[in-house]
Amino acid sequence: MVEFLSTYSETWGMTPASVIASVFGAFAATFAVLICWPKLVKDFGAAGGILSAAFLIGTFWLLNHKLPGFGINPDQIKDASGHVQQFGLVNQAFRGSCPWVDMGSAIFCGFWVHCLMGAKRGTRRVLVMESLPRIFWALLGGVIGGVLTGLVGFSGAKLFN
């Protein structure tokens, strides 16, 4: 059991244990956001949304995405194997040598599926078609923002050396 769960797969870029952890991490973050965020906004207005951003996204960022290696205690405390292990639940595949997959994808999917479940039968096809252009433009905006932010790596400004 332990051997199967911790066997690294070159095809997936992760171990079965990481798959389970990633699915659960995505589930937990999305479920909490779906249940809590709208209620907090209803109770406290805009301040509730900022509170949700701090408590929900802040806490689930730590659960899902924190990587060891930086900060106040950068080495962490070594675990029994003598190494520092990743403890973020959403595994970044291929030992991190691939673009970042954010839990935002899970939260978006959760909201979309949730609204689709809540819609009346017969209207769902229209709703899906209506949302596609908005999805396209939002995603394109994100890609543009990411590309422009990533361009700093091309600037050649090497500081501190």
Binding site: F111, W112, G150
Partner: peptide
């Protein structure tokens, strides 16, 4: 309508940033 959350652009940006930055 079906809610389009800002998680979607964040996901797109993470992938694009990861590709371009490195």
């Amino acid at each position: 309508t079906l809610w389009v959350d800002q998680g979607l652009p964040i996901f797109g940006a993470g992938v694009a940033w990861g590709i371009v930055r490195f």
